[in-house]
């Protein structure tokens, strides 16, 4: 856990700060470095000078990595894709908070203006047994994929595109379904949960399809199979701290967990010998 090989990276100049008209942030980063799955990890300290407040957090890490590459060192591994807050690829923990301090914001949409000059930022990967660390800030979230594969879908004939509005859905149901469907599967809920529970994620998937007519025929199977897959992956049990809800970048509500419980209980009672 001790700091190793401190590095000072210069030249992280902001676009506006090129002429020195705008002073950027001075930051100390303590970044978790881990070579491979199961390998021992430790924090590595880096200092960044003149960081533009217009940068996103990931752009700030890009600058750090460019400096590390120039020095012939291994860049910090982190995941990202769209950088628009909608793909769910990015995500790590900044000063103990998944996706950092800003409410309902993914780390790619978190800007450096959220921080003060002179701050020390401790950057760690999501920590949960079901999300093993692969390298540095990258964790294996394929457990979520396996839960979705167990039932987080509707089986439809993939022939020609169906007519629009062929299936009428009441506005309230569509709204409820969309609120749950806003989940991007980033895993912040698991990272924030003291129990490493995935019930907000699974609750969002089950509630989303339970609100739609297309989801009805597989409703019971979905609840039973997704909960079984969730338990098999080694996620914890919900204690209703609701840190997951507070940490969710998409504002998924805790009512989805209660609905998951209802769906699972009803499906269990109806399942009989299945």
């Amino acid at each position: 856990m001790s700091a190793a090989s401190p590095t000072a990276v210069q030249g992280a100049a902001s676009p506006t700060g090129a002429a020195g008209t705008k002073q950027g942030l001075k930051l100390v980063l303590k970044v978790w470095r881990q070579g491979a799955r199961g390998a021992p990890g430790q924090f590595e300290t880096h200092e960044l000078q003149n960081v533009s407040t217009d940068m996103s957090f990931l752009e700030m890490l890009d600058v750090l990595n460019e400096g590390l590459i120039r020095e012939g060192k291994d860049p910090v591994a982190f995941e990202h894709d769209c950088r628009e807050g909608i793909c769910g690829s990015c995500g790590f923990v900044i000063n103990g908070q998944a996706h950092g301090p800003q409410k309902e914001t993914t780390v790619c949409q978190l800007h450096m203006r959220s921080f003060r000059s002179g701050e020390t930022l401790v950057i760690e990967p999501f920590r949960a047994t079901a999300f093993p660390i692969l390298k540095d800030l990258v964790v294996d979230r394929s457990a979520f994929d396996r839960i979705v594969a167990a039932g987080g879908y509707v089986s439809v004939n993939t022939g020609s595109a169906p007519d629009a509005n062929a299936i009428l859905i009441p506005k309230d149901n569509a709204e409820r379904a969309f609120d749950a469907a806003a989940c991007i599967g980033c895993g912040a809920c698991v990272a924030a949960c003291p129990n490493g529970s995935a019930m907000l994620f699974v609750g969002a998937k089950v509630s989303h399809l339970a609100a739609l007519p297309q989801g009805q025929s597989e409703r019971d199977h979905r609840a039973l199979d997704m909960v079984a897959a969730m338990d098999k992956e080694g996620f914890g049990d919900c204690s209703n701290h609701l840190e997951c809800v507070a940490s969710c970048p998409k504002g998924i509500a805790g009512t989805n967990i209660a609905q998951l419980n209802r769906e699972f209980a009803k499906a269990s009672l109806r399942s009989g010998s299945r």
Partner: peptide, 23 residues
Amino acid sequence: TLRDNRAARQSRYAVSASRGAKT
């Protein structure tokens, strides 16, 4: 559940910060 939850979260964060939901 205590056993399950301990097993599901074996490593701790270096910095622990609640978002105020936990009491």
